[in-house]
C-alpha cells in the first residue's frame, strides 16, 4: 500500500492516517487506503469495528480527528460541498419521505443536488428502470416493502451521477431473496454506470461481489486484498457428504485423495482448497455411496478469526462494552 503522507488525488477514495477519537476511545485508528476508480471496494467487519465511522468521515458527515482523506479528488474537510456533489449515499436506515411518491422523493433529491432541469426526467426514468421501480413511480413510498425502499434509495443515490456511491450495509434487515435481488441490481449498475462503489457489509458471501475487501477490527484495517486471495489465505472449503457407510467412505477418501475426513453431525466432513471443483471428483467414485453433498466456504468468521484471533461475536461484544463505557461516544452515536 502507498504509505506516503498525503492522499492520492487520482484515486476515487484515498485516506492517509484517518483517525476519529471520542474522548479516550479511538473509533477509527489510523486508516490508509486507496480505492481505484471503477472499483467495487468492500469494508468488512463486526459492528463497532469503525466501518460506519470511517464511511461518515469519507462522506463529510463527521470531521476526522486526524489524518486526511480525498474523495473524487476533493478533500473531505476543506471541500465538503464538492465531495457531497460527487458522491451518492445509501444509509443503513431509510431516509425516504414515506408521504411522498417515489418520483417526488427523487425529484426532491434532483433539486437539492442541482441536477439540470433538462435531464431530470430522463435520468429519473433511467435510474428507476434500473431498479425495477418505474411502474411504481407514482405510488407513495410508505406502501413499499423494505426491499423496494432500499432499491429506491439506491436509485436516488445514483440520480445525480455521482462518481462514488457509498452503500452502508445495503442489504441489512432484508430477507435472503431480497438481498440477492439487491445484489443483482448492484451488479447491473456496475455494468451500466461509470462508477466506483464503496460498501460496508457483515457478510462474507456478499463480499464476493467486491473487487477488493478491507477487513476492519478495532478501528484498524487488519488486511486488504481480493476476496479470492483472502479466502485462499484462510484456507479451505468445508465439504460434508452424507453416505451409506461413513466408515468405508472415510477410508476411501484417505486412500484415493489423501484426505483426513471425520464424522460430524451425522455427515462425513473434510476440508479441501476449492470445494466446488472437488465435488465432481466425488462422483467419479461411485463406490463412496454418496447420498448428499454440501460445500461451505470459509465464512467471514473464519477469515476474521484467522486475522484477529477472535470470533466476530467476541469482537462485537467488546465494541458494545466500549460504547457503553464512553458517554461521549454514546452521545455522538445518537445523532
Amino acid at each position: 500500500m502507498n504509505k506516503t503522507l498525503l492522499p492520492d488525488p487520482t484515486a476515487a477514495v484515498s485516506a492517509r492516517g484517518l483517525v476519529k477519537q471520542y474522548g479516550d476511545f479511538r473509533a477509527v485508528d489510523g486508516i490508509d487506503l486507496d480505492v481505484r476508480p471503477g472499483e467495487t471496494f468492500g469494508f468488512l467487519g463486526p459492528n463497532g469495528a469503525g466501518k460506519s465511522t470511517t464511511i461518515k468521515m469519507l462522506c463529510t458527515l463527521l470531521e476526522p480527528t486526524g489524518g486526511h482523506a480525498v474523495v473524487a479528488g476533493y478533500d473531505v474537510v476543506s471541500q465538503r460541498g464538492s465531495v457531497r456533489q460527487n458522491i451518492g449515499l445509501v444509509f443503513q436506515d431509510p431516509t425516504l419521505d414515506g408521504y411522498l411518491s417515489a418520483a417526488q422523493n427523487l425529484k426532491f433529491h434532483a433539486e437539492l443536488y442541482g441536477v439540470p432541469k433538462s435531464v431530470v426526467n430522463t435520468r429519473m426514468q433511467q435510474v428507476m428502470e434500473m431498479v425495477g421501480l418505474w411502474e411504481r413511480k407514482d405510488a407513495r413510498v410508505d406502501t413499499f416493502s423494505g426491499g423496494m425502499k432500499r432499491r429506491l434509495e439506491i436509485a436516488r443515490g445514483l440520480l445525480h451521477s455521482p462518481r462514488v456511491l457509498f452503500l452502508d450495509e445495503p442489504t441489512v434487515g432484508l430477507d435472503p431473496q431480497t438481498r440477492s435481488s439487491i445484489w443483482g441490481y448492484i451488479e447491473e449498475l456496475k455494468q451500466r454506470e461509470d462508477i466506483t462503489i464503496f460498501l460496508t457489509t457483515h457478510y462474507m458471501d456478499e463480499a464476493e461481489h467486491c473487487d477488493r475487501i478491507a477487513i476492519m477490527d478495532q478501528g484498524r484495517i487488519v488486511v486488504l486484498d481480493t476476496p479470492a486471495a483472502l479466502k485462499a489465505s484462510v484456507g479451505k472449503d468445508r465439504v460434508q457428504i452424507g453416505t451409506r457407510n461413513d466408515a468405508a467412505a472415510i477410508a476411501l477418501l484417505k486412500e484415493r485423495f489423501d484426505l483426513d475426513a471425520e464424522v460430524n453431525d451425522g455427515h462425513v466432513q473434510f476440508s479441501v482448497a476449492d470445494g466446488e471443483e472437488f465435488v465432481p471428483n466425488l462422483f467419479n467414485n461411485i463406490d463412496l455411496g454418496i447420498r448428499s453433498v454440501s460445500v461451505s466456504r470459509p465464512s467471514l468468521d473464519d477469515v476474521f478469526m484467522a486475522y484477529t484471533g477472535r470470533t466476530i461475536r467476541d469482537a462485537e461484544q467488546s465494541a458494545t462494552d466500549k460504547l457503553r463505557s464512553s458517554p461521549l461516544l454514546a452521545a455522538g452515536r445518537r445523532r
Binding site: C59, T60, L61, G81, S82, R84, Q85, L89, F91, D93, P94, T95, L96, D97, G98, F108, H109, L112, Y113, G114
Partner: peptide, 13 residues
C-alpha cells in the same frame, strides 16, 4: 425521526 432529515443534511446545499 424518520430519517428524511439526513437526506437533506447530506445534500450539497
Amino acid at each position: 425521526e424518520f430519517g428524511f432529515l439526513r437526506e437533506m443534511l447530506v445534500a450539497p446545499v
